[in-house]
Design a protein around this nucleic acid. Sequence first.
DNA 1: TTAATTCCTGAACGTTTGTTCATATGAATG
DNA 2: CATTCATATGAACAAACGTTCAGGAATTAA
Lengths: 201, 201
Amino acid sequence: MNKRSGINSKKRILDAALKVFSEYGYKGASMRMIASTARISIGGVYLYFANKEELYLTLIKERLDDFSAQVKTSISEIEDPVKAISSFIMMYLEYAKTHKELILTQGREHGFAFAIDIKREFFKEQRGIIEGIVARGIQSGVFTECNAKEVTKIIMGTMRGFILSIVVDPDNLFSPKECCRLMLGGLLKRTNRAEGEKVRR
Amino acid sequence: MNKRSGINSKKRILDAALKVFSEYGYKGASMRMIASTARISIGGVYLYFANKEELYLTLIKERLDDFSAQVKTSISEIEDPVKAISSFIMMYLEYAKTHKELILTQGREHGFAFAIDIKREFFKEQRGIIEGIVARGIQSGVFTECNAKEVTKIIMGTMRGFILSIVVDPDNLFSPKECCRLMLGGLLKRTNRAEGEKVRR
DNA sequence: TTAATTCCTGAACGTTTGTTCATATGAATG
DNA sequence: CATTCATATGAACAAACGTTCAGGAATTAA
């Protein structure tokens, strides 16, 4: 494993870091674990990343940007607020399932004010997107009159809850489809039949 | 600090452990930190707990039991499913706010299959309670016909999301009241006025 | 072939960790 | 008073940690 292999090394390290950080958390993951998973020496890791923190931050930033881009492209052109919200929920949960619990690694360690600026930025953006959809829905009379900001926070909360559930109670994850249904239709019975049907599809 | 002080020592250690584990996570918290927070020597901690893991497990179990009892007594006699669900949500979120993010400590470390049996038991019980309420609501015609199991998972997911939000984005927590509203009423507009009002209160 | 460059290795260092244990202390008992 | 016993201490230890660095190996350039 020498010379030209260096082209892949950085990527291999990042892949390994994702795996190890996800499984053991920031403190629990050791640089040696990451190195051996990436099939490189400990010293080799420090060739590409100055220290553990930089490696971790690079990883988080990479993932957040990737996710952010995916959200944008997947719902930017959807006009219908109902479809837009549904799409957001579906894609968020699908992404969370695929990329498991890296997101959870954030927050926990360091007294949880770690990559706070990067995260804040990300969350703010996400909130902006949903809030826009909700506001549009209210304005067009499709959604009930409510506090768009609060509803947005609740939706984001539920998404986060899904992520936490993956880690804590993976045998009992809720279905994205049912989640859309509940968020849109609510638990209380509707007397108007047409509405009920709209929700169901 | 000698002799008779031993009466309080165990409790002091547990209090300190809660504080330190919550702030630094399992791996991040050191026995020395806990000891000094409890104003006891390192050796003193090992007088009451065989090791770090036992201390942690004791703590988790204590909290889970406490929370479990509080849930039960607060909604056991409520007949109305709407009020029962609302009570559950309100009390869950209030408890989470008070006891911050100890619950988050679970899952993350140890490759996240740690106190799995204790937790599983706890979650199962919680699910059972909510599912009962939902089923009752459906049967009595107050709730829409839906998959009670799925709805239960979504509600629990949202509760967990709140917990995660406390750690990750504490400036943007949603209000418990609004959460009840959304869960019950949904986002879609209702044509029937009476229903809408029912949700609002 | 030699020199320069790039990539990589792993022993070594200083810290910090969880845990142990010989020792001390002071109230309770006789 | 002396003895007993629960309670508390903190130096000591091995293990693991993040990080450094002198050196080795493979490729490219001369």
